[in-house]
Amino acid sequence: MERALERESVRRVVAALALVGIEDRVVALSDTARSAQDAATALGCELGAIVKSLVFQIGDRAVMALVAGDRQCDTKALPGILGLAGKCKRADAEVVRMATGFAIGGVAPVGHTSELPIAIDGSLNRFSRIFAAAGHPHCVFETTLTELVTVTGGVVDEEVSKNP
């Protein structure tokens, strides 16, 4: 899986992280990190320490919610958190690829091909270390909530998520 680190999508994540001084954090796992549960199992960490990068549409605009692996995005709260009006719905695979440049299963919170409004789940503050996808289903990077805010420019809000 080391070759996954050579993928263009993974290199975009590495470059975005490097812009804010975060280096040498992207790793390739032997097991898939396609889902939050897969990533938690592969990393041996709590499910909640996995950052799910979820893409939605509010009206015609693509947006992202970064949500703890053990929580669900509150799609009713998301438009207000991002200061947008309209109904929120899950984006399909084509919209995800167009908005982020990533395929579902490897969508990273950074390195997008277009600028997205981003809301970050405040419940991630339960963990000193969190892990996010890095542009490929086998690649992740370790970070903190503070670093995630810095690198994404996202808005942290406790209302982004709810218990399933």
Rank of each mutant, 00 (worst) to 15 (best):
E158P: 08
G48Q: 05
G83Y: 02
G135I: 11
A119H: 12
C88I: 06
R25P: 12
R3G: 14
D121Q: 04
G86Q: 06
V26H: 15
L145V: 09
A103C: 01
S128V: 10
E147V: 13
L43M: 07
A91D: 09
V151A: 12
A15I: 13
A133I: 14
F141Y: 14
V110A: 09
A49Q: 14
L78S: 07
V140K: 00
V13H: 15
A134P: 10
C88Q: 04
R61C: 00
T32W: 01
Q72H: 15
A133W: 05
M64R: 14
R71A: 06
G69L: 09
A103G: 04
L54S: 02
H136Q: 01
D70G: 13
V96T: 00
V55Q: 03
G48E: 00
G44V: 11
D24T: 02
R71D: 09
G21T: 09
S35T: 15
P137T: 01
V67D: 01
V149E: 13
V160F: 12
H136C: 01
V160Q: 12
K87Q: 07
I120H: 14
G44I: 02
V156N: 08
A36N: 03
I22G: 13
A16S: 15
G105L: 08
F102A: 00
L145F: 15
T143F: 03
T150C: 03
V110F: 00
T113D: 02
T143C: 06
G122I: 08
A36L: 00
E46K: 15
A42F: 01
S114K: 03
G48R: 08
P117I: 07
T113I: 10
L82Y: 12
I50T: 08
T152I: 12
C139E: 09
D31M: 03
T150L: 03
I104D: 00
G48F: 07
A39N: 04
A103M: 05
A77E: 03
Q57N: 11
E23M: 05
H138M: 12
V149W: 06
T41F: 14
C73R: 04
L47V: 06
L82E: 12
T113W: 04
L124Y: 00
I58E: 08
K87A: 08
A99G: 11
A108F: 10
A99Y: 00
C139P: 06
R90C: 09
I104T: 04
T144L: 00
G21H: 09
G69N: 01
S161Y: 09
D38N: 06
K87P: 05
L5H: 10
M1P: 05
V96I: 08
L66F: 06
V96W: 04
E8Q: 01
S53N: 06
L47T: 07
F102Q: 10
L19M: 15
A132L: 11
V160W: 14
K162V: 15
I50Y: 00
K162P: 08
A16E: 15
L145C: 05
